[in-house]
Structures are given as structure tokens and as C-alpha cells.
Design a protein around this nucleic acid. Structure first.
Lengths: 350, 350
DNA sequence: GGGACCGGGTTATACGAATTACCAGCCCGG
DNA sequence: CCGGGCTGGTAATTCGTATAACCCGGTCCC
């Protein structure tokens, strides 16, 4: 069964010996080096021998000589294991592969020691660059050691401003969501946020700012009681939606700052015997593929363009050069489904 | 800002020059090679110089000399991007890191050409082994090239029997699920499967077999009408649950062969105005973390032990040696939540 | 006082591929 | 008959590390 030479370790010297030529000839022929001339017969023999022996180039020897490896480091906090962020890796990997590069992946789980150690290891492997990715959009500290290679911060922003960053355009997303509901005719539009708007959660801050802007632009005075702080999970949506819908003046529409929150809202609405979108319209955020399309009715939401963001991160790495610490923002497109309708006439307090 | 020597490329020779010793001395001191003796003063100078210059070993040079790299290849079809299988990578990576190894990850998205090419690249990097992972449990063809290194099939089984495989114990899982419902007092127990039981879907086949075994053991004659073939998605659960619950003799309990199917069932049950677990009890499968705990009521389900399976795969690789093509099965523990209760007295046809 | 031994290092080589410089033979022109 | 150019290659060097082999000066012991 074992093909001849399939045991690890066939080198160019072996091929050279089998073909009756020198190692240099093998190298030149196999790499089709420019400006060299070998007879057809020699090329044939070299290729035949290489094939016969199952020759495979030793990447380490090559890197040692050439200086840079065909690998890109990808370190994330939870990206690899997060249920929805897989696309971010998929995009990065796809772009890397187009350039013939492989991804050396580590997800640290937030462990700083592991992070430091794996970065060291990556650098010792002479990676062509490092993508430093975060599961959710925030402002973070980038390890100093990344200054030694091309590095890009993905789905977050570098506090120090040393590295280029890639992040979703939260404010525009929030604006688009609210505008969609306004355009449908709603005026009492609640927002269940995924965290406080004071701090370092650009998603919460930005989406809220966009929501406010859309309201103001439409001449709607925002009711502070309609903005609620959830926790980003299903339960945050459930509890807040329950409170909103059983309050004195329930909203006719709710913008949930992420899809999980929207899901909780679905469950609360169902529990109250109300229906979506008849009694209340909903817009989510994230377009989480395991959730948004499968809710009944399907959830209208904004898509986080993770695939493109991942691609772009690697693209920036490959481009090299610039290295300014500016942030590139990605627009989140609206994905229409069936959770938005015009408000019903009766402004019932159920 | 740039620390001295932080420019890539400090070698042992630089350190040696700075410390006034030979390159060999640097190597021996830094690696604390056994059986060598250097004065405290020399060691100090070497360490100081290495630190000062920001020396970092060149992994490629080391691998070239030593023959084997500190990397493990991980190739999966969709594992990296699947919403629930992240744990499988997390486990593999954790175990690898304990051995000081990094994961070289590729998810092929089912593209055989990409798969072949990335395996070639991985082998050229002299990976210590390869984990060949699948998103869902099936019997698959393993590329021949993997015979050249230690390799393990993860979350699937190798058809050829050449490689050790790791898979969940489906039959026992199905048995446990059904038994949980039987123990609660149910007799009319439906199963919504995730695919046909004729073919190459061990999850569908095994879980069904376990379900049948539990029924028979309890003296319950299985009603063929209660076994329905879904598609593994939410809609498969929804449609089939609707059909079951509106049929002439609805079941008092349903075993859904995965959590997404269970979710669809939740939505169907809600639509019918029924409640879980009062009108019908449910057991799922997968313990999908974004789903099962957040349903209302929480879903009782079986957990796929992906973390342990991932760990074990790397463990087998590191162990080396054996290399028989046997399959190691992992038990799926029951996770109790609140979707199971005793059947209500009234055998209402709703 | 001469060999054995030990502390404290150094020299040289190998790993596998890429690349530069060179070389041998042949043909051709003048 | 000598030099130049072309064809078809080869020899030697480089990358950075690990390690086996060796070396030198001083002690100790008989």
C-alpha cells in the first residue's frame, strides 16, 4: 500500500540522485526558475524522479533561506469558538489561501498568558503578519510584541492607535434599524440595548446613537423610558420586552440591539399572547444565521459583515506599507424578513 | 518606542557577539542543555544579551535541524465556522498547547481541492500530526496522503479503517433520551429524526436504534407513525411536530434528534396553543449552547462532548504508536432542564 | 613529574532548499 | 587558431540552530 518514497523525508538530494543530476538542477527545474535552460530530457527525468519518490519541499528549509513564512497568525479571544463569529475566520482564511498562505490559529479564551506565549511562538515561526481578532466590538489593548510584525485589529479598535483596525459601522446600523421602523409608520419605538451606553461597548453606544439620530431626523422625541439596557442575551430581551409590553404605553416597535435579545423578545411577546409583527414590529442586529432566519416570523435584522471583515484584515496585512492606526468601518446591510409591519390602528395597552 | 533589537532578525550569532562568547555557548546556555557546565558569569552575560537584543529562536532553523515541527494540522469541513462545533477546536487546541504545540487550521468548506492543497502545505511544514475533523458524524473517505503522518479522524469514522476515529456514542444517546421519557411515565413517544435511517448518517441511525431499544426494553411497541424524518433544521422540527400533534393520536412526548429540531417543535407547540412540558414533553440532542438553555422552558437534551473529543484527538496524535483504525466512542451525558414532565391525565387530541 | 581528569568553553558540521558564480564543451567568425 | 557566445549544466554558499567532537590550562594523585 505504501507508495515508494512516501515515508517522510525525501529531499532534493534524493531526487537529484535518482535523476542523475545535481541538487541545484532539481531546485531550478522544479521551481521553473526564470532564465535557466535545461534540456527537455533532463526536466522530464527530474519531474519523474520527484513524482516517483513523492518529493515534497521542506517548507522550513525554504523559509529559513527566504526569510518569511507562508503563514499568518490569527489570534482571537473567543472567535474560533463563538457560535456566530466563524465567518470572520472563514473570510480571513479564504483571503489568506488566495495568497497561498495558511492560518496559524489560536483562540486564547481571554487568557493573557496563553496569548503572550502563542504570539511568541507565532513570531518565532516568522508569520507574515498577525490578525488580532475579538469576538465582540470593543476598544482593546494590543500586546506590544505585535509591533514587530504587520498586525491588524479585527472587529475591535486598538486603543493606542498604533494598528489599523476593522470594525462594523454601528451608528449607521442603529440608524438604519430605527429608520426602517419609522418608515413603516412607527412612532413609539423602543430599543433594548445590549449594554450600557456610557462605556466601552461601541456596539451599544453606536447603535443607540444611530437610533437617536433617526428618531430626531423624523421629528420624534425619544422617550427615555423606551430605551432599556439588556445584557445581550436572550434573557435580557425577554425581561425587558415583558416590562415594555406590559407598561402603561407599550411601544409599537422594538429595535433589539442583537438577535439574541430579539429572540428573547419573541418569547416574551408569545407569552403575552401577542403576535409579531401585528402587535409589535421588531428589528434585530447581527443576522445570526442560526437564529434570525428560523424565528417565526423571520427576523428583519442587520447583518454583521464578518466574512468581508475577515477578508479585509488579511488584505491589509498583505498590503503591508501604510501601518497607520486608522479604523476601517464596514457597513451592516439590512436583511429584510417578516418581523416588521405597519403599526395596527388600536394603540391598545393590550 | 521601538525597543532595542526588536527588529526582526536577531540571531544567536548576534547574541554571541554581544556576550563575547560563541554561538554554541549561546545555544547550550539558553537551552539549558543537560551535562554542560558554564560559569555563572557566562550564563548571566548570555541571558542578558539575549534579553537586551530581544532574541527569539527561529523556529524554522530549529525544525530543519530537529526534523519535526511544533505544529499540528487541523483540517475540517466546516468545523471552524459551524455555530456549535467550536468546542471541538477549543478542546484540540487546549490539548495541543499543553504539549507546546500550535494548531495550523484550515476549514475546507467541503472543497476537495482546497483540502488536498492545504494538506500538502501542512505536510511540507512537517506537522506533528493531523486531525481530520467533520462537522457532523458520518463515515468518510480520508485522503491517502494522511497515511504519511499520524492522523486521527474526529467526529466521524474512517471508511477504510486505516485511521483511529473518535465519535459520539449515538445509540446510547438515543437510548438515554427515550429512557428519560419512559421513566417519566410516557408511552406514546415520538421521534423526529434528523435524516433517513437507511444510509450513512450514524447520528440518525444510532439515535433511532437507541430509541427503539429503550422502547422495547420497556415493553412498549413502537408505533411506526411516530417516527418521522426531519432535515435537522428548525423547519424539520416545526413541520413534523405540527403533523404529529394534530394527528389522530398525538404523542405525549417527543424525542428530537437534535436541538434545532427541538426548537422547531417548540415553535409548533406554541403555535398550537399547547405548552411544554404540560401538554408534551421534549428531549433534544446536542446541548447547543446558544439554544438549549435559552428556550422556555429550558430544553432537556444530550450533550455532545466536543471539548473532550477534541482533546482526545490530539492526545491520540501525541501518543503515536498504535495506529489501528478502531473508533473510540464518547458518551453523551444527559443535561436536565425543564422540558420533561409526567404525561398529563387527559389524552386529549388537543 | 607525568598521566588522568575536570572545568569551561570552542570548532565544525548537518539539516534542505535557493541562488550565484562558474565551468566545460561546442560552434562560429575572423 | 583564437576568442566570443551559447548550451547545459554543477559547485559552493547561505539561512539559524543543535550537538558531537575536541581543546586548553590547571589540579590531583600516585
Amino acid at each position: 500500500m505504501t507508495r515508494p518514497g512516501s515515508r517522510s523525508g525525501t529531499t532534493m538530494n534524493d531526487v537529484a540522485a535518482a535523476a542523475g543530476v545535481s541538487q541545484a538542477t532539481v531546485s531550478l527545474v522544479l521551481n521553473e526558475a526564470a532564465g535557466t535552460r535545461f534540456s527537455e530530457e533532463t526536466r522530464r527525468r527530474v519531474h519523474a524522479a520527484a513524482h516517483e519518490l513523492g518529493y515534497r519541499t521542506n517548507a522550513h528549509a525554504k523559509v529559513l533561506r527566504d526569510g518569511v513564512a507562508g503563514m499568518i497568525g490569527f489570534v482571537g479571544d473567543f472567535v474560533a469558538t463563538a457560535p456566530f463569529a466563524g465567518k470572520i475566520i472563514e473570510g480571513a482564511q479564504a483571503r489568506a489561501w488566495e495568497a497561498g498562505l495558511l492560518l496559524l490559529t489560536v483562540n486564547t479564551g481571554g487568557d493573557k498568558a496563553l496569548e503572550a506565549a502563542s504570539l511568541e511562538t507565532m513570531l518565532s515561526y516568522k508569520v507574515a503578519g498577525v490578525v488580532y481578532a475579538a469576538m465582540y466590538h470593543r476598544v482593546l489593548e494590543v500586546p506590544d510584541v505585535l509591533a514587530e510584525v504587520p498586525a491588524v485589529v479585527l472587529n475591535s479598535r486598538d486603543r493606542s492607535g498604533r494598528f489599523p483596525s476593522i470594525a462594523p459601522e454601528e451608528e449607521l446600523g442603529g440608524y438604519t434599524a430605527a429608520k426602517r421602523l419609522l418608515d413603516a409608520g412607527h412612532r413609539r419605538i423602543a430599543m433594548i440595548n445590549i449594554g450600557a451606553v456610557d462605556g466601552e461597548l461601541p456596539a451599544a453606544v453606536g447603535r443607540y446613537a444611530g437610533y437617536l439620530r433617526a428618531l430626531k431626523e423624523a421629528g420624534v422625541h425619544p422617550d427615555p423610558g423606551l430605551h432599556r439596557i439588556g445584557d445581550g442575551h436572550e434573557s435580557g430581551g425577554f425581561d425587558n420586552a415583558l416590562a415594555l409590553m406590559t407598561g402603561p404605553q407599550p411601544p409599537t416597535a422594538i429595535f433589539c440591539a442583537n438577535d439574541r435579545t430579539a429572540w428573547g423578545t419573541f418569547q416574551a411577546v408569545a407569552q403575552l399572547g401577542l403576535s409579531i409583527p401585528h402587535d409589535v414590529s421588531l428589528v434585530g442586529f447581527d443576522n445570526q444565521e442560526t437564529l434570525a432566519p428560523h424565528l417565526r416570523p423571520g427576523l428583519t435584522t442587520l447583518e454583521l459583515p464578518f466574512l468581508e471583515m475577515g477578508r479585509r484584515a488579511v488584505e491589509l496585512l498583505l498590503g503591508g506599507a501604510e501601518r497607520d492606526g486608522s479604523t476601517e468601518y464596514f457597513e451592516c446591510p439590512l436583511v429584510e424578513r417578516d418581523s416588521v409591519a405597519a403599526p395596527s390602528k388600536a394603540t391598545s395597552s393590550h
